[in-house]
């Protein structure tokens, strides 16, 4: 198991390095001069040249890449071209906000989706199963940005129950929770449907397995069979999916951050790409890739820990 964990960790690091290298090369070839954008029309060509040199843009890509990785090893992600703030500070400010949003969005989706899937499987082909099925598909089919806009119009504009913008007062936990409700609702909405469908399908498979039928024959109560034996097995593919979903939600947090004007990695990365603010762009991308890779790694290790078949195969 430990060897497997080490191998997976090494692989995750390799994925990070390769992804960042590819993104670095893409950033290098896309058109656009950050000095023109950063300094504006009033800058003289000499000033732009000076900034280009300071940013190291005149050097060949492999030198720039070398500088990037060697700085990274020292924990230095560079400085924001515009405000001269260290990129690491920007990452520290934005990444936790995006991660909290993604965790909350996925958390409420899992809290609702998994029980719904279980219930659907137990009530297979009954009226309530069909109603849950219809709602699940409807939730999956609704684009997240639409959910966000309608949620805003209903709960913020019309009812005035929840705030429309921001991430809440720093240091005020309650206010931050209130500001989290709408964006988390919007990004998690479709996942309720996904998870409920997935759990239903795997549960149905498991409920037909011999050991479950055997338990029934022994007269164990249905709730015990479902929760203690069937769900434990059925939830394994869901854990893998949750790992992937977390990465997906980090991406879909971008629109939520824009619509709800919520500071986070997505909003900052978009601005950085538009302004060709390369240090910020690379810093935020690297942090997102790292988080995503770690999530899939944790999901894999968790599945291995929970599933004796996988554990034995290692």
């Amino acid at each position: 198991m430990w060897l497997y964990a080490l191998q997976r960790f090494g692989m995750a690091l390799l994925v990070c390095v390769l992804s960042v290298t590819v993104l670095f090369c893409i950033a290098y070839v896309i058109p656009g001069d950050p000095t023109a954008i950063a300094l504006g029309p009033r800058a003289t060509p000499a000033m732009r040249e000076a900034l280009r040199i300071r940013m190291g843009l005149g050097e060949p890509i492999y030198i720039q890449l070398y500088h990037f990785f060697s700085s990274l090893l020292r924990g230095d992600l560079g400085v924001d071209v515009w405000s001269n703030r260290p990129v690491i500070d920007i990452v520290k400010e934005t990444l936790p906000k995006t991660m909290i949003l993604a965790v909350t969005g996925l958390g409420w989706a899992a809290a609702l989706g998994i029980p719904l899937g279980c219930y659907s499987a137990i009530r297979r082909n009954k009226l309530d199963d069909r109603i849950i099925g219809i709602f699940s598909i409807a939730m999956i089919s609704t684009p997240s940005f639409l959910t966000a806009i309608y949620a805003l119009l209903v709960f913020a504009v019309t009812l005035n129950w929840l705030p429309a913008i921001g991430a809440g007062e720093p240091g005020n936990f309650g206010d931050q929770v209130v500001h989290l409700i709408l964006p988390a609702f919007a990004i998690g909405f479709a996942w309720v449907g996904y998870l409920s469908r997935l759990v239903r399908a795997t549960m149905l498979e498991v409920l037909n397995e011999t050991h479950i039928r055997f338990s029934r024959a022994f007269g164990l109560p249905e709730w015990k069979i479902t929760l203690k034996y069937a769900l434990k097995i059925a939830v394994l593919p869901t854990i893998t999916l949750l790992g992937m979903a977390y990465g997906g939600l980090l991406s879909s947090a971008v629109f939520a951050e824009i619509i709800f004007n919520r500071p986070g990695v997505g909003q900052s990365a978009l601005a950085a790409v538009n302004t060709r603010n390369y240090p910020v762009m690379m810093g935020l991308t690297l942090s997102t890739i790292f988080v995503f890779t770690m999530c899939t790694l944790i999901a894999d290790l968790l599945v291995a820990a929970l599933d004796p078949k996988i554990r034995k195969g290692l």
Partner: peptide
């Protein structure tokens, strides 16, 4: 940054 987001924020009295 987004004008539409600002308009919604105004309507919700933010």
């Amino acid at each position: 940054e987004d004008e539409k987001a600002a308009e919604i924020a105004f309507e919700s009295r933010d």
